[in-house]
């Protein structure tokens, strides 16, 4: 059976697409699936660095497209699990070096060998976005609880539909439970009400995720960190398991103190 290709996209930049791709990919691979990660942000590649694989790149996606190497030669094996490979993109080429039809063909080839192909989309809705969605079977939208990010997510839902990708699912990233509690951040219900697509996961903003990115070790490896736990849960939901969403309320200093003095 051929694998499933998921595109991870957002419209707005800086909401955590690449981090989500790295974590979901590694998470799925650690649970025994064969996974290929594809960085489609030609000219601004990041996924290699987030995965900690930047020193191993020889060939890239553009080399494969241009026929400078075979697909298998450009796939970088992950250092933590043999189930995971990364197809990096070119850093020094123009972003239109790849065409959507070529991307579609490439993803199709990968689907023959891998269970999951995760395509990390660039920000924006132009050429790179069209490449990223070209071969995808399903889409995951990443947003943060901010007006601009949710607005862009809404636009992306429409554009995905126009490309035949219906029913994308949503990851809300960088949720600050303390701010939600104070009424200073939109909560998940607000965002789901507005976007009207199914929720795949909620990832709290914590320091662990920054530390892990500094080291090139996706946070999903760290089960003691709330964001790592959240990504682990998303992985299980992708496998079809029903996992309750994290209760993020009990995180604040007020809550900790209250529990300490027995007020709740």
């Amino acid at each position: 059976m051929p694998g499933k290709a998921l595109v991870i996209t957002s419209g707005k930049g800086g909401v955590g697409k690449t981090t989500a791709t790295a974590n979901l990919g590694l998470g799925l691979a650690l649970r025994g699936h064969k996974v290929a990660l594809v960085d489609s942000d030609t000219g601004l590649r990041n996924l290699d660095v987030v995965m900690g694989l930047e020193n191993r790149i020889v060939y890239d996606l553009v080399d494969v497209i241009e026929g400078n190497c075979r697909l298998a030669q450009a796939l970088i094996r992950d250092k933590r699990t043999r189930n995971l490979v990364l197809l990096p993109t070119a850093q020094s080429k123009e972003k239109d070096a790849v065409k959507p039809e070529q991307m579609k063909e490439l993803v199709k080839q990968l689907k023959e060998e891998f269970d999951y192909i995760l395509v990390d989309s660039p920000a924006g809705i132009e050429h790179g976005f069209r490449n990223a969605v070209a071969g995808a079977d399903e889409a995951i939208i990443v947003t943060t609880p901010e007006v601009a990010a949710v607005r862009d997510a809404d636009r992306i839902i429409g554009l995905l539909e126009a490309s035949g990708l219906y029913d994308p699912s949503l990851i809300v990233n960088r949720v600050r439970p303390d701010m939600v509690r104070r009424g200073d951040m939109m909560d998940i219900t607000d965002i789901i009400d507005i976007l009207a697509i199914p929720l795949l996961g909620v990832v709290p903003d914590d320091e662990g995720i920054i530390v892990s990115t500094n080291r090139g070790e996706p946070v999903v490896l760290n089960g003691r960190c709330r964001s790592g736990e959240a990504f682990g849960n998303i992985v299980r939901r992708l496998e079809g398991e029903e996992v309750p969403f994290l209760d993020l309320r009990g995180d604040g200093i007020f809550e900790k103190l209250k529990r300490l003095v027995g007020l709740r």
């Binding site: 007006v147 607005r151 636009r155 104070r182 009424g183 951040m185 507005i194």
Partner: peptide, 23 residues
């Protein structure tokens, strides 16, 4: 919390309006 009250409500309302127009 009182000083900050309404920043979430403001976000929701602004988002709602901008989406009515976008959509």
């Amino acid at each position: 919390g009182r000083e900050n009250e309404g920043s979430k409500a403001a976000a929701k309302e602004r988002l709602r309006l901008v989406l009515v127009h976008d959509r």
